[in-house]
């Protein structure tokens, strides 16, 4: 009989066993040597999609797995046991002094008071769920489901928070309930009567005429806007704006100049002089008035003289006639 190649056979067996052990170690046997904490939570909602081995995540970091799912018959609640790998939690210090598990539970207890809760979340579109541990409640907020008394002392109870999906369902149910209370028949009747009224209004000839007028107005407006657009081309507008700007600049300069000149004008003195001048003008005006009155009298006298001379040129030599006295005639009897 042909002998076996002992070296090849030995190599085959040894490498096979080494691979087997390596695979066992890689596929989870190493978990046996890691330190774990046991979290327990109780859910009121359905845990469909959550299986033994489903992920447990703390703020999205997979820190453990679901170990057991059981039903609390009396309370009709679902009890979920989770294993949490402590190696995921670090303090930044090289080594934590004392009992690591106790310190971890202490940390979790303080975080629970700050609102640490666990919630069921969907892992994609497949319907599978995982447990998300995060701060879903406000600090100091009372827990929805208190810790059951019969839970073991060495497990840490994390209160649950309703999942997003259950919230949506609740919202939908409330919405549907509210919708069902709406009196659709009455609304429908009101709407139909309103529609009838509206139909009457719409078929009113006055409205048609108003619409026609509006149409005309709008066409006129359109034409006007077209004309304006033609006149006020962009170039033109720019020119106008430039001119306006120039004018404003000039106005600004003028105002500055006026301000400076007003500053230089010595207003009190000028106004005093102006007042004095006004007074003197006033006196002059009065004198001029007197003069003019006298001149007027003189002109009148002169005109009278000229008229007299015209009537009686000889008076220039004879002098002025004495006024003829007309005596009244005696009344005939």
């Amino acid at each position: 009989m042909i002998e076996a190649n002992k070296f090849r056979l030995g190599l085959f067996v040894l490498i096979g066993i080494a691979l087997f052990l390596a695979c066992l170690f890689v596929f989870g046997l190493s978990d046996m040597f890691t330190k774990k904490a046991r979290f327990v939570s109780v859910f009121r909602e359905s845990v469909q999609g959550l299986n033994i081995g489903s992920s447990v995540k703390y703020k999205g970091v997979p820190v453990g797995t679901v170990k057991k799912i059981s039903i609390l018959v009396d309370e009709k609640l679902i009890l979920v046991d989770m294993d949490i790998d402590l190696s995921f939690f670090t303090t930044g210090k090289s080594k934590v002094q004392g009992n690591l598990l106790q310190k971890f539970y202490q940390f979790c207890r303080s975080e629970r008071d700050k609102g640490l809760r666990c919630r069921l979340e969907y892992a994609g579109i497949t319907g599978l769920k995982f447990v998300e541990i995060d701060y879903f409640a406000q600090p100091g907020e009372p827990v929805a489901i208190p810790r059951p008394d019969y839970l073991r002392k060495d497990v840490f109870y994390v209160p649950s928070s309703p999942g997003v999906f259950s919230d949506i369902l609740k919202l939908i149910n409330v919405s549907l309930e509210r919708i069902s209370k709406i009196d659709f028949e009455n609304i429908s009747n009101q709407m139909s009567s309103t529609l009838g009224e509206m139909k009457k209004i719409v078929s009113d000839p006055k409205l048609k005429k108003a619409i026609e007028q509006l149409k005309n107005m709008s066409s006129n407006l359109e034409k006007s806007s077209e004309s304006i657009a033609k006149v006020l081309t962009e170039k033109r507008l720019r020119q106008i704006f430039n001119r306006v700007e120039d004018s404003l600049n000039s106005l600004d300069a003028l105002a500055k100049r006026v301000t400076s000149q007003l500053g230089q004008a010595k207003l009190p003195a000028t106004s005093k002089a102006f007042r004095e001048a006004a007074e003197s003008v006033n006196d002059t005006k009065q004198m001029l008035g007197n003069t003019l009155m006298k001149l007027d009298q003189a002109i009148d006298a002169l005109t009278e003289l000229v008229n007299y001379l015209n009537d009686d040129p000889s008076s220039l030599l004879k002098g002025k006639k004495k006024p003829k006295i007309d005596f009244p005639e005696p009344q005939k009897k």
């Binding site: 009989m1 042909i2 002998e3 076996a4 190649n5 002992k6 090849r8 056979l9 085959f12 067996v13």
Partner: peptide
């Protein structure tokens, strides 16, 4: 056992 080794070599290491 020698036969066992032979068959292991035949069916195992040679088939690897």
């Amino acid at each position: 056992w020698r036969d066992v080794g032979y068959y292991m070599d035949l069916c195992g290491s040679q088939a690897l």
